[in-house]
């Protein structure tokens, strides 16, 4: 959060530093008073009665109400200004990404038909609207460097905006406890310059790259004829299920299983063979495939650019 990389988070960080300074001042006052009491006590003889402390009441009233009150009002007003900026609507022309929470991964859909999972691409330097809903339990969308968090609530459609000032890969994670793999419901927001983003978005909307090698072709056959296709979609093939992530351009992603594993042949093969070993409780069952078949499926999937 402290390492803010977008305007929505910048306001919050300024608010934080201000509140931290005020908090330190209050803490210092408490320390000084306690230390003062301890030090003074060394010099007070036990027999002498303690002096009257008629300043006590006014001290409490002045510090506790007269000084604290206006400071609180000031911070409140300032927090509302930050809130208003963060809650402001995005321009009509803004890109709107529809993010849906699943146990335990993130589905992202774009207006042009592009669909991906766990790696949400956005253009830099502009507000991007994120529309949030969930198919199962409550999740919470949080990219600490880019903005506050917003919950994904069943039966409700929340929205927020994020903006990245410069290109980069910003880590996000589910922030509302959602069951066994709450810890592995990770995603990345990938900010590209607008040109690069448009290229990515156009490519992502296209159907699959037809496999060329023999092994990849065999992988496709296996994918379509076994349990894989019952949950996953690959646009341009008969596989159009929506239970698991859309894999049309899987090879363009760096991670799989919501940030749990790297998207390389080794991890992908492990994942297909035994998802429960990598991410206990994940809804993906083990594929009843031989290692050669898995290798073929991996070859097919790794060609889906």
């Amino acid at each position: 959060m402290i390492d803010a990389r977008g305007p929505a988070e910048h306001g919050i960080v300024s608010l934080w530093w201000l509140m931290l300074v005020l908090a330190c001042a209050v803490f210092l006052l408490v320390c000084v008073m306690i230390a003062g009491g301890l030090i003074r006590s060394r010099h007070l003889s036990p027999d002498e009665p303690l002096p009257e402390a008629s300043w006590g009441g006014p001290f409490i009233a002045i510090v506790g109400v007269a000084i604290t009150g206006p400071i609180l009002v000031f911070v409140f007003v300032l927090s509302l200004r930050v809130l208003r900026a963060d809650a402001a609507s995005t321009p009509k022309s803004a890109l709107s990404v529809h993010v849906t929470g699943h146990d335990w991964w993130w589905q992202a859909r774009y207006p042009n038909g592009a669909q991906t999972a766990n790696e949400i691409h956005i253009p830099t330097g502009q507000r991007v609207r994120i529309v949030l809903d969930t198919v199962d339990v409550i999740h919470s969308f949080w990219v600490p460097q880019l903005g506050p968090k917003t919950d994904l609530i069943p039966g409700k459609r929340n929205s927020m905006w994020i903006e990245a000032a410069s290109p980069g890969r910003y880590r996000g994670q589910c922030a509302e406890f959602c069951g066994f793999q709450h810890a592995h419901m990770i995603f990345y927001v990938i900010a590209d310059r607008p040109g690069a983003f448009r290229t990515w978005e156009r490519n992502e909307a296209r159907p699959l790259m037809q496999p060329t090698s023999a092994i990849a072709k065999r992988g496709e056959q296996i994918f379509l004829s076994t349990t894989c296709a019952q949950c996953h979609a690959i646009r341009g093939t008969p596989a159009d299920a929506t239970v698991g992530p859309d894999l049309t351009h899987l090879a363009g992603r760096r991670t799989i299983a919501a940030g749990t594993l790297q998207n390389d042949p080794g991890d992908l093969s492990d994942w297909i063979r035994d998802p429960q070993a990598e991410k206990q409780g994940a809804l993906m069952p083990s594929a009843p495939l031989s290692q050669t078949d898995i290798d073929a499926v991996v070859a097919f999937l790794e060609g889906l650019h």
Partner: peptide
């Protein structure tokens, strides 16, 4: 002191559940 910070809505939205 860290508690009163949560009264500031945007700060709370950034740090809640962390």
């Amino acid at each position: 002191l860290s508690g009163v910070m949560f009264a500031a809505i945007p700060f709370d939205q950034a740090t809640t559940d962390s």
